[in-house]
Design a protein around this nucleic acid. Structure first.
Lengths: 129, 129
DNA sequence: CCGATGCATCGAAGTCTGTCAATATCCACG
DNA sequence: CGTGGATATTGACAGACTTCGATGCATCGG
């Protein structure tokens, strides 16, 4: 159920303004879903399917993971809003949620200043205390 | 030392083609650095600084984390190639590495087909077996 | 109604991670 | 050289994560 709660939450900018504790938590959960080899490959394989979707039985083989493990990872990705699940008969089909992936990309948008500049020479010492 | 080893490795596309085990591992390490509330806030605060850089003593306060914890997170981010560290006198200044962040953004580029389409109504049942 | 099949959940083992106190290291300044 | 301040490293601990076998649940076919 907390699936789309984050759909809006992930419309955040990491590098444009200081992130509050809650916003950072939300984004961290999103990136955490991508921080696993198996899950990245799941996304990758699903995106590579002709129809853009795949069911669990298509994924256990190529990834070399047990079925419960695959199911678990798909759950994590779905709860992060990156995948959508649709049950058709006995099978459960998963597909990407492009909007959510785009939102994560946007979260990493660089600030205008930094975009072009690589290094500045002599930044002044900020006031400690 | 393994800092720029990944700089090239993260020039990968998650959603354009099936990811191999090693490539996925590499990318997962990159995203893992972003998968923490504290580290996201560190990036955020550093990016928000006037000069685009900050030293440790500027960051422990706003984040409410102990100095060793901040140092640890900065290390993780630096080893992921997202931050660059420069020592000036007693202080260590950290700044973003825009190229690396852009690389991570690119890794999430959507496949052309999925880019425009949000959901298709009746995906045909894939051939199981 | 029954058996088979695909998927989800549970429970457990082993590993990794975030956090901090204590301590070490590095550097500037007398 | 010795002192003090800023940062890095170490050690330890609680909590979370990955993985899989076993099991439960739902659905299709007959």
């Amino acid at each position: 159920m907390p699936i789309d709660e984050g759909a809006a939450g992930c419309r955040l900018q990491v590098l444009r303004e200081p992130l509050g504790r809650a916003d950072a938590e939300e984004l961290a959960r999103c990136f955490h879903a991508l921080a696993d080899r198996g899950r990245l490959r799941l996304l990758s394989f699903i995106a590579a399917q002709p129809g853009g979707e795949a069911c669990v039985c298509h994924l256990t083989g190529p990834l070399g993971l047990a079925q419960p493990t695959v199911s678990h990872h798909l759950r994590v990705l779905t709860e992060a809003g990156l995948l959508a699940r649709e049950r058709r008969g006995t099978w459960a089909y998963y597909r990407l949620v492009p909007a959510r992936i785009a939102a994560l990309r946007d979260a990493l948008a660089l600030p205008a200043v930094t975009a072009g500049v690589t290094t500045r020479s002599r930044p002044r010492r900020a006031s400690v205390r």
